[in-house]
Lab assay of single mutants.
Amino acid sequence: MASQGTKRSYEQMETDGERQNATEIRASVGKMIDGIGRFYIQMCTELKLSDYEGRLIQNSLTIERMVLSAFDERRNKYLEEHPSAGKDPKKTGGPIYKRVDRKWMRELVLYDKEEIRRIWRQANNGDDATAGLTHMMIWHSNLNDTTYQRTRALVRTGMDPRMCSLMQGSTLPRRSGAAGAAVKGVGTMVMELIRMIKRGINDRNFWRGENGRKTRSAYERMCNILKGKFQTAAQRAMMDQVRESRNPGNAEIEDLIFLARSALILRGSVAHKSCLPACVYGPAVASGYDFEKEGYSLVGIDPFKLLQNSQVYSLIRPNENPAHKSQLVWMACNSAAFEDLRVLSFIRGTKVSPRGKLSTRGVQIASNENMDAMESSTLELRSRYWAIRTRSGGNTNQQRASAGQISVQPAFSVQRNLPFDKPTIMAAFTGNTEGRTSDMRAEIIRMMEGAKPEEMSFQGRGVFELSDERAANPIVPSFDMSNEGSYFFGDNAEEYDN
């Protein structure tokens, strides 16, 4: 993207840094990872977990959730003011799984939030270390993106479920800051804005008074975040219109849905970061690795190297396929839920299948599930090659597409044709070009129609051997075009429920 120079890199967003050079960025990201790792080690000690239990991804998720809940100030305040039966607002906890007599047992633990905050700050040299908290939120978000298709949420806001490739980060909490905003897809931002506008339509006082002023500035800020994701002048001009509207209503909703559809071809720039579970960072720190000293990046080879040398386990339900569970977590670790499966298959070195073909449910185990038949197995999170994460949407291309997802959002900077089903997408653009945004709409449609099938995206960008740390010898991959490109292809993934 041309304006790259004016933006802070995501590592800076990730670490609240002012302008830093590459070495400083690597050190501050490393410091953040160190903090998460030290916190995780301490929690495993508190909970008396064995090494194996500490490497269980379900335990990692519970521990991450506990610290996120302990620092969720708004919710904590709300819980104190609106006490609900049987919930102690000062405590947080969740299921911890232990191996007892050759069987997995679930144990519900409860801790004072104050105590968890103390352990977290102690692991982070006394700081609140917001960057580390956001990092864990993005890992949870990436896992949700890989596990669930947001059909219901899309339909509720009037969008087409086939636009799911635009929904990265749709389950990120509001408090995820600049680093969170960077990884949100165009569809996620559109959905947040539509929800806001709908509230304004239904509630006369939404934009009024002292609160209304705050609401208005939040609305304009979200519009600017979305505008910054678009790469064409016409899309940005249309966002200006939406932002400046005196009284946002149905016309703005129409414009936003139009823009979301246009992003299936004229893709937005959305950041991709490899955020790993805390149970990967903990053992690495415990083994003596100093992330701050060595430096770390979320968008280069580092996460690949770390996963190459990590042992992570997962509980497996009786009829689940461990290899499929591994694929789910591998995609989440690489922030690749909406990437082209052919690119992923090449990088991973084994075939990556669409969601609907995987015999696996989510990673988390519900409290009512029976533990008797639970097994555990090693997650295979290694890769054959590594590639640089991208934040450009890439230019655009036609490809055989599917009944489910009709476009992709690249996660890796790797040369390819970008699949999208042009006739299906263009069919949504018939007729409606009147109104105050008509010239911009016409211009956007013209650009979409001009998108050429034979153009290559990320020209000359390749993948790298894991021994090639400096990215000196790019390998331009070859793809098996007979395979499906979309992950949520004609899909039956479970729906995400809060």
Score class of each variant (00 low, 15 high):
I57F: 07
L143T: 06
R74C: 04
I41M: 13
R389D: 07
S335G: 10
S392G: 12
R355E: 10
Y10R: 00
G228K: 11
L276M: 14
V363M: 09
D340L: 09
R99A: 13
E369Y: 13
I36K: 04
D127R: 11
A178E: 02
E24Y: 04
E320A: 05
E449Y: 09
T171A: 05
Y111C: 02
T390F: 05
A263E: 05
T62Q: 02
Y296G: 03
S467R: 12
I25Y: 02
M222F: 15
I194H: 01
G490A: 08
S486M: 06
R99W: 04
N432W: 02
G37P: 07
D439E: 07
G393D: 01
N124C: 12
S413Q: 06
I425C: 15
A332F: 06
Q231C: 08
E210I: 01
G394T: 00
S392E: 03
Q399H: 13
M371F: 02
A451I: 06
R246K: 15
I63A: 14
S9D: 00
I444W: 11
S478H: 12
A323D: 00
G435W: 12
A218N: 02
R216C: 06
D34T: 07
T130P: 12
F338I: 07
A263K: 00
Y78T: 02
Q42N: 02
M136F: 13
I265T: 11
S486V: 00
G268V: 15
Q168S: 15
P283K: 09
N432C: 15
T45V: 15
L358A: 06
L193N: 13
W120N: 10
T45C: 14
G185M: 04
R267W: 07
G393R: 06
P410T: 02
F346M: 15
R213L: 06
A27P: 02
M163D: 01
N21Y: 04
D72V: 07
I138Y: 01
I253N: 10
S60Q: 07
A85P: 14
I445G: 08
A237C: 13
D480G: 02
S438P: 08
A471N: 02
S274T: 15
R175V: 05
W207F: 15
R8P: 08
R267Y: 02
Q405T: 02
V343R: 00
S50W: 00
I388D: 12
A234Y: 03
S367W: 10
Y52R: 04
W104K: 04
V408D: 03
L276H: 12
W104Q: 08
E320K: 11
T390K: 04
Y385R: 13
A181Y: 07
R99L: 08
L315N: 05
D302T: 03
E320Q: 07
E339Q: 07
Q168K: 07
F479P: 10
A323G: 12
G435A: 08
M238P: 01
E495K: 13
I301L: 14
R441F: 06
I347L: 14
K7R: 02
Q398G: 01
R99D: 04
W139Y: 12
H140Q: 15
S377G: 07
D497C: 09
Q311M: 01
M32P: 08
S413L: 06
E244I: 08
T146D: 08
K48Q: 14
I425S: 02
H135L: 05
Y219Q: 06
I265P: 12
